[in-house]
Amino acid sequence: MNYFYFPLEEWTNDFVNDWLLPVMGGFFDSISVPLRSFIDGVTNLILAIPPEIIAVLLILLAWKLAGKGTALFTLIGCLYIGSVDLWAETMQTVAIVIVSTIIAIIFGVPVGILSAKSNVIDKIVRPILDFMQTLPIFVYLIPSILLFGLGGVPAVIATFVFAAPPAVRMTRLGILQVPQEVVEASKAFGSTSKQLLFKVQLPLAVPTIMAGINQTIMLALSMAVVASMIGAPGLGSIVLSGISTVNVGLGLIGGLAIVVIAIILDRITQGIGNKL
């Protein structure tokens, strides 16, 4: 099938080495620096709070939003994480999840709104989202080290790329799902498009948007292990060192901690969506 040679590989390398790194390096630094301090800020904040307080807050939140069963599970889960001595690693992972989820929402919800309002934007955004979700993670994980260095920042960027699409898609879906007659009624009484968006479409789309954010959080957590390969601290690095030293027990306690935190976050965010 090779009727001609397509030098995409060489072009890409030339592009990265001759232009992206030397010319755009400063630009990436300007993203990297504030992002790093954001991640560090969040990590330090939740590490500074005594574990007991966080555990109690989580249990109360779970009780209020998801019922007694989840509250009990949260209690057992927190006790487990503490007793296997992984609290600090768990909080580091949670910090990365929080930061990448916030960025995914900041980016995803507005893009979702725009693609709901305009077919043209939707046609442009859709393939980009497909690309973000299906491109093998390692393909952009390695370049992101080149651009952002090792540690939390490339982890957050890679997590964002992987986890943002559901936020976009579900926001769009939520807005399009608002019954046509309700939208017409609002327009018929003279709403501006801004009023329509903020008084009708967004409030009614919130449950669907929350479902999207829930998915974003789950995907972000699943990136935790992968991101540890590029030096992200947290549970992922425990699992990774368990694997690399054939320490099955270490791998298991880290892996279980990820599952525990995933279930807690999932039930709580679902609870928020149902309550609204």
């Binding site: 309700v182 009624a185 327009k187 018929a188 009484f189 003279g190 008084k199 009708v200």
Partner: peptide
């Protein structure tokens, strides 16, 4: 928008309530 607000009320088949 102003005309809709000041001159035209509308009632819908499936009510169109918020």
């Amino acid at each position: 928008i102003d005309t809709r607000r000041k001159k035209l009320g509308m009632v819908f088949q499936k009510f169109g309530l918020l």
